[in-house]
Nucleic acid binder design. Sequence first.
DNA 1: GTTAAACCGTACTAGTAGGTACGTTTAAAG
DNA 2: CTTTAAACGTACCTACTAGTACGGTTTAAC
Lengths: 202, 202
Amino acid sequence: MARRGRPKAGEEAAHRDAVISAAFDELVAKGYEKTTMLDIAKRAGASKETLYNWFTNKEGLFSALIKYQADTTITRIKVALQDNTDPRTTLIDFAHNLLRILLSEPSLSLNRAAMTSVDLAAILLKHGRHATGSIVENYLERLAEQGYLKISSPESAFQLLYGLILQDWQIRVLLGETPPSEDLLSQHAERAVDLFFSLAKG
Amino acid sequence: MARRGRPKAGEEAAHRDAVISAAFDELVAKGYEKTTMLDIAKRAGASKETLYNWFTNKEGLFSALIKYQADTTITRIKVALQDNTDPRTTLIDFAHNLLRILLSEPSLSLNRAAMTSVDLAAILLKHGRHATGSIVENYLERLAEQGYLKISSPESAFQLLYGLILQDWQIRVLLGETPPSEDLLSQHAERAVDLFFSLAKG
DNA sequence: GTTAAACCGTACTAGTAGGTACGTTTAAAG
DNA sequence: CTTTAAACGTACCTACTAGTACGGTTTAAC
């Protein structure tokens, strides 16, 4: 990975990804404060100066991480919601994905990092919670129009669904509790969606 | 507050409280990383060496903060649950208190601080979430025995209640969103408890 | 070829904060 | 009255890290 001199054509994107990936690894291993720009550079086979050229500063680099993770999250959620089977299965799939993502180490580390900087927090809120929120709200609104749900507003419906799915798992795991197993997660997703329907089906 | 020399008898407790209070103020104002021991000492009219004598190190001081806040929280929750009116009113009172506490600046700042240290996180988890959890679970179990609820386990019942009450408010406010108004909070508490009963009443 | 951009590696700057040491002061203890 | 514990204030040490500067190197571009 360590190349010296001007990069060959077409190599830039891969190199940038290597930096992002290295930053994730360091972040998960050490946390935001103890992750240094030098460590990231070394792991990526890049130089510190390059990191600063590309991302301006440490916050800039980590805001790029947030956006990167948010993009893959959004993609996965959109895929889950495009399932054309019944709404129950679709929502269970969504719930399962949401739990898996939000309880994954990269997401947790990113959330912890965001707590230490108002700017990072704002970016995470915008690209994370609010971005997925509006997508799911659209979906719920469609369900309501089709008569599957009776809801007062898409926002409050999504908040309810979110609460039923996540309960206090995220905050507990953020504080160091070990996350539930895959099996428990999928059981929980199913139960949460069923509760949601029993509350929102009118 | 700034006394020099050996303290007069009976002054120690007040002085210790002054340090705790100063630490809270600094924490809320600047966040954990940017709060220095010197700042706290100055605000409390104490010396840095005294802080280290009393609390060993920075983490020790903040773990004292966590325990202090947890104690007052537990007290308030116990009071709310001792109400001998009907269960619905009691739980709404509890829900309202929980929301107010968890969305208050001191609690938020403490949670953000705990995210940066596994040790602090463990303490917060134990004295915060788990301590209140077991109290409320006991209460819910009593309700179940009295026939007010049909629940599979107190743990899962409390988790459900918690999810209905808090939804994603805590994580959103932790990330910088402005918390809902008092009015919204109490409306929300009522709605959450009603949903809980409609799900858990069998 | 020659130029110039992008990059690596190393060294350097500067600021900061946790933690310690010490001399001084006050009041409790006896 | 003397001794001693507890505390203040200041100065100090140590370690670390974000960010900058620069010289050397490789490749694209022309």
